[in-house]
């Protein structure tokens, strides 16, 4: 005789993808709470914490955007090790447009977002046919290569970078723009992946030859996914640049490639919400540990390891399961 865990779905049929049959106000609350509560808590946080932690929140939103963009690409079968490419591209574009062309901030950010996404897609077009590790390696190398080009040719300020860029009219606008963007990306990507369009992307990740066999041009779809994810990454870069009022070689740093992946792994891949949650854990954690000096990285790495070993599925999947299912122990007889 063994003890086994049995999982039972909760009453509300909330797991159907887009059909909600609501029986009562409680059902409505059950559905809305997980969507609204984080937003409410966050809004409360923004008005209670000081300017330092507000800056941390902004930085968190930036990494959340990169992590969501990464997760979306994975859903389409492309594992990017180079989110820094999108980030740096958006950052430099906005810097160039603002410094050399004196474009105002409300123009540089949207243009860098779209142009950055398009440029990244264009650069990656030749490797779109590569799958798995080959695609990943190229994305890893590209940002590191671009930074060397800037260093060697001394364009766009070279190693000095470009400083004195336009800043936001107010810190509240900056803060809410960042957070709103992260949430907009979250809801938009989740919605897209649940539509038929998302089915095709998931199909490509599952089995690209089969999608091709179904008469669908997978390279066109992959390019579109790349453009969307690239644009979100480029937005993060452009947004951050105006926050620092500076753009330089560090925007192509490995941090912007690796930390989003860590956030996605901690939070739970494949949900978009997981990576966002992961970013909201890892970035503040990294700030809290700042006081520890040299030991910071050690503790950071240790907690990352603990997270991954204890909850390999990711925090979001775990919470989601607890929220949607009862668990009980049942006795099972094997004869």
């Amino acid at each position: 005789m063994y003890i086994r865990k049995e999982r039972i779905d909760r009453g509300v049929k909330a797991r159907t993808e887009d059909l909600f049959a609501l029986a009562s106000g409680w059902d409505l609350l059950y559905l809305l709470a997980p969507r609204l509560l984080p937003i409410l808590v966050l809004l409360l946080l923004t008005v209670t914490v000081g300017p330092y932690w507000q800056k941390v929140l902004i930085s968190t939103a930036v990494f959340a955007l990169l992590a969501i963009s990464w997760d979306f690409l994975v859903a389409a079968g492309m594992v990017s090790l180079g989110q820094a490419l999108f980030f740096g591209m958006g950052a430099y574009l906005t810097g160039i447009l603002n410094h050399y062309f004196h474009w105002p901030i409300w123009l540089t950010i949207p243009v860098s977002t779209v142009l950055g996404g398009a440029l990244c897609t264009f650069i990656l077009l030749p490797v779109l046919r590569l799958r798995g590790i080959y695609f990943s390696m190229i994305t890893l190398v590209l940002p590191l290569m671009l930074v060397r080009i800037i260093e060697a040719t001394k364009i766009f300020g070279g190693t000095e970078g470009i400083s004195g860029l336009a800043s936001y009219p107010g810190r509240w606008l900056e803060l809410y723009l960042g957070l709103a963007a992260a949430w907009a990306a979250l809801f938009a990507f989740r919605r897209l992946l649940n539509a038929d369009y998302g089915l095709i992307l998931k199909g490509i990740s599952d089995n690209d030859r089969s999608v091709m066999s179904a008469g669908i041009n997978i390279y066109w779809y992959k390019a579109q996914a790349l453009f969307l994810a690239g644009s979100v990454g480029a937005f993060a870069g452009a947004f951050m640049t105006h926050s620092y009022m500076f753009v330089g070689m560090p925007v192509f740093a490995l941090d912007y490639s690796i930390l989003p992946i860590a956030a996605a792994v901690v939070g739970g891949m494949g949900t978009m919400a997981g990576p966002l949650l992961g970013a909201f854990i890892l970035v503040p954690l990294s700030e809290v540990l700042r006081g520890l000096g040299g030991l910071r990285i050690v503790i950071y790495a240790l907690s990352l390891t603990v997270f991954i070993v204890a909850l390999p599925e990711g925090l979001f999947h775990y919470i989601q399961r607890k929220y949607q299912q009862f668990e009980r122990k049942v006795k099972v007889d094997y004869e």
Binding site: D196, L199, I200, K202, G203, D206, N207, R209, S210, V211, S213, A214, G215, I216
Partner: peptide, 26 residues
């Protein structure tokens, strides 16, 4: 159109969602 000897379904999608992909072709 062809089928594959080694079956190539979209393993993570429900059977009938598998059908949406060819049905979404031009």
């Amino acid at each position: 159109a062809r089928t594959f000897q080694m079956v190539r379904p979209f393993y993570h999608l429900p059977a009938f969602k598998n059908m949406i992909i060819p049905l979404a072709s031009p």
